[in-house]
Design a protein around this nucleic acid. Sequence first.
DNA 1: GAGTTTCGCTGCGCCGCGCAGTGAATTGGG
DNA 2: CCCAATTCACTGCGCGGCGCAGCGAAACTC
Lengths: 159, 159
Amino acid sequence: MTDPNRDRLYEELATESRRYLAAYVLFNQAVADHLGLHPTDVQALSLLTAEPEPLTVRQIADMTGLTTGSATRLVDRLERGGYVARTPDRQDRRRVLVTPVPQRVARVTAVWDELGRTWQTLFDDHSEDELRVITRHMRRANDLSHTQIQRLRALPKKD
Amino acid sequence: MTDPNRDRLYEELATESRRYLAAYVLFNQAVADHLGLHPTDVQALSLLTAEPEPLTVRQIADMTGLTTGSATRLVDRLERGGYVARTPDRQDRRRVLVTPVPQRVARVTAVWDELGRTWQTLFDDHSEDELRVITRHMRRANDLSHTQIQRLRALPKKD
DNA sequence: GAGTTTCGCTGCGCCGCGCAGTGAATTGGG
DNA sequence: CCCAATTCACTGCGCGGCGCAGCGAAACTC
């Protein structure tokens, strides 16, 4: 139950996770500054390009955690910057599909890939099993945090 | 060089990382909402409690990525909320040391630990070696992103 | 001891954001 | 079939965090 060795590993991993997140936020900020965008916009673009199909405004709102109103404004900015295009949905005419503009978005992903290349060198001395371990951990932590978020939102607010 | 199997793993890990970090940001946001704070404040508290010694305002500014002015305001909010206390530095009287107030901060970390406990159940079927692999990856990615941020800031801004 | 640098702090304006409400489109129940 | 309820994206409005520029005070430099 309380293996002191494992406890130390847990502790270490917890602290490292915090720094990991902090580093990501800083990196995201740096990318945004570099491109003259806002961190939220970069984050949205990252999520948008990760999905195979175009998203609706509401989906973007859910994934970023903003309201639909703010999401509309976000898409406004991205559209004005030429990063995405609004396309009406044929099936449901209330909906608006937001599709990324490849050549423009490439400018953003280029910065990401710049990191990605260095990442590869970082991964190169990992075995395939180790890579799978990391990926699996992230996926599970991802799922877990979603349920945790649900719980937090359902709970009464403190103070 | 181009092992298709590894390439697929890289691809998978890259996408999963995005989602993982996005989820982390969302969780941070949810915690902030729950406590009636701002995400930046929670992040600062997280970093503040992770360090063994009190930080100066400038150090907080550097770690969070904001200007000293905004950092001052951030400390103002945290102080007003009773989360931290300002202490003058004896050695350098220009400096102000920001020390977390344990009993008040405990309220925040309680929410983190709530996730931590569930995390433990998630980790329980990992071997110690696997835990070390994950921790090591995060630490290295952390270091790497810092150098990347330096590079980004040095580069000329695009657009 | 005068000049320079660093510290934290403070007006100011910008702008992202949540809130609440709008019209249009879709869905469901009698 | 029609009318109510829901969902969609969008829009004023006010709040407030943030960067910017400048401020005295304290520390370092020569």
